[in-house]
Design a protein around this nucleic acid. Structure first.
Lengths: 148, 148
DNA sequence: ACCTAGTTGAAAATCATTTTCAATTAGTTT
DNA sequence: AAACTAATTGAAAATGATTTTCAACTAGGT
């Protein structure tokens, strides 16, 4: 999703396009991993040094509201965001070393969900699925270290 | 898992059994839902009014260390705990109304995991799976409200 | 070139969690 | 049973993240 496309969506919801917002969009859309509000703030500051951390928080709120961003849960951080790339239902594989995130859509949980619903009596409305591990890049580094 | 059993495990790790710890264990082991540190604190205070919130935090740290407690992620809270009931690999179904949690073990993700590993190059090490919805009790209440 | 509602940033307020430290206590040793 | 010691406790302070408040500013319509 390009910054322009995102900008267009914001405008469509009656939101103003400030340069601060553009800068935040650029950082989030350009990242391949999940970012905490503080990390986004630091990155945005390189391009827009006077931006306030509050603005980042507010922007994340807006993006979450419009479902353009999704939260990544991790071992420690649970308030880490990334652009929602495929629209609709999807999940993540997170690299525990570099934070890189890859999405996947087909999760084949329908059958499990039905079984659980039957067995527990819950009316199941949603689910959260995240895999964690090491991406190819980080695997390579670990292997390289082992040779030293 | 009974409080006595838990107490025994703690002792086995050279930890002292204080009445504060017993009180915290009793609350967590006696709950059928997930609890935030603050919620545990409030419940424990009924039985042990002079306990400090710090002690609750420390106890959670100890229990997490020993893998006796597990974290429940929710829409909002990500630092909510509950006793780990079945030992080993398992997941949760969380009621978004009352917070009740039911565990399940067989999650049938092996095949998905292999496929994802093959497709993305990740070495997958773990996963987080949580279903959310309404438990039978809360479903009943919603239905009852609809009749008024 | 206005006008106005939405937006911004600084500072303060709030809230959760961790650290520090002196006093207390469980469980062992004598 | 008294003494001992390392672990534990609670209050207070420190830290860190997030939210609120508010006056100044600005994007985008008129």
């Amino acid at each position: 999703m390009t910054v322009d496309r995102l900008a267009h969506i914001l405008r469509g919801h009656g939101l103003k396009l400030t340069s601060q917002r553009r800068a935040v969009l650029k950082v989030i859309a350009g990242s391949h991993g999940h970012l905490t509000p503080a990390a986004i703030y630091e990155l945005v500051r390189k391009e827009y040094p006077t931006i306030g951390l509050v603005t980042v928080y507010r922007m994340l709120e807006v993006l979450a509201e419009l479902d353009l961003v999704c939260r990544v849960h991790g071992e420690t951080t649970c308030r880490s965001y990334m652009m929602r790339r495929p629209s609709g239902h999807h999940h993540h594989i997170v690299c525990s070393s570099c934070g890189k995130v890859v999405d996947f859509a087909r999760c084949a949980l329908d059958e499990l969900q039905h079984r659980l619903s039957r067995e527990t009596g819950f009316k199941i409305q949603g689910h959260l699925l995240e895999f964690s591990g090491l991406c190819q890049g980080c695997l390579g580094e670990t292997a390289a270290e082992d040779h030293r």
